[in-house]
Design a protein around this nucleic acid. Structure first.
Ligand SMILES: [Mn+2]
Ligand SMILES: [Mn+2]
Ligand SMILES: [Zn+2]
Ligand SMILES: [Zn+2]
Lengths: 146, 146
DNA sequence: TCTTTATTGAAAATGAATTTCAATTTCCTT
DNA sequence: AAGGAAATTGAAATTCATTTTCAATAAAGA
């Protein structure tokens, strides 16, 4: 197990203790599996992965644990055009947005300070203060466009 | 009835004829009500409005008609953070994005060519060609922030 | 008017996500 | 180590928006 994962699991443990939540075998397995799998996974897909080795862990618990991870700040929930809730590990509090390929489904992450600044500027013109935003581009990735 | 609405209903009729769809009393009433009501309405809310005067029109038909309007290009479907599908009339093919107040729920529309250009630039850096995008800001409007 | 075909509304189905609940587990406190 | 309060679990039930099904009805073209 990679150091980074151990670290995240430690943070989860701390969060749970602080909240009076209990550490369980299920949460441990689900969190580990989540941290080492690809980004933007749905609860259902993570459940399918976990269910191969752990027949006794129910999908309800996977849903619940992903929610817990999001609350603890270790994961972020996102909803793209297919309307499914997807989770990704939080990468050192660095914000990013997404390019989503309509053909192969691949997701490219990017981060652009200029864009963020422009957003702030636009919002301020309306006297609006941004708490959060949601931005995705849909189209075709390099490989999928001809 | 305003001229603009009559015009839109004419366009709908043309679209339906071209597709072999039939003009019905229900579609006429639903489209009229939709075109004259506030933007970003859900099927359910439009149904509630219509149901006051037209007890015989079912919600299923409202769902279906809004979908038809979107297909015909007269409406756009949008999904914001509450995960409900909302519809708004298409305004002379002018694209816009949204500022959504987390307190009062008001929605401010804006349009910024600079932002659009920046988006294209970012996408092209990844060899990605944008077909569509989705961008909303969540926060507090002028009235709701203190 | 006749006839084909689309449309309608009610009810049932869908599917992701949440809730319920009895049984089990965790983790304090003795 | 044992006891016990409180949280957690998995299965099943429930929710809620939306879609599908289907028999009855309505539209439109001949
Ligand atoms: Mn991401
Ligand atoms: Mn709008
Ligand atoms: Zn692709
Ligand atoms: Zn407000």
């Amino acid at each position: 197990m990679i150091k980074e994962i151990t670290e995240k699991k430690e943070r989860l443990k701390t969060y749970m203790k602080q909240k009076g939540f209990k550490s369980t075998r299920q949460r441990d397995i689900i969190a580990s599996e989540f941290f080492k799998c690809e980004d933007h996974i749905t609860a259902e897909d993570l459940y399918i992965k976990i269910n191969k080795r752990h027949k006794d862990i129910g999908s309800t618990t996977v849903y619940r644990t992903l929610k817990l991870l999001a609350e603890s700040g270790l994961a972020t929930a996102r909803v793209f055009a297919d309307q499914l809730t997807r989770y990704e590990p939080v990468s050192e509090d660095e914000h990013h947005d997404h390019l989503i390929c309509l053909d192969c489904g691949s997701i490219i992450e990017f981060e652009d300070p200029k864009l963020e600044r422009l957003q702030e500027k636009i919002a301020s013109e309306f006297g609006f203060s941004i708490v959060d935003h949601n931005m995705e581009f849909y189209g075709y990735c390099r490989d999928c466009k001809r």
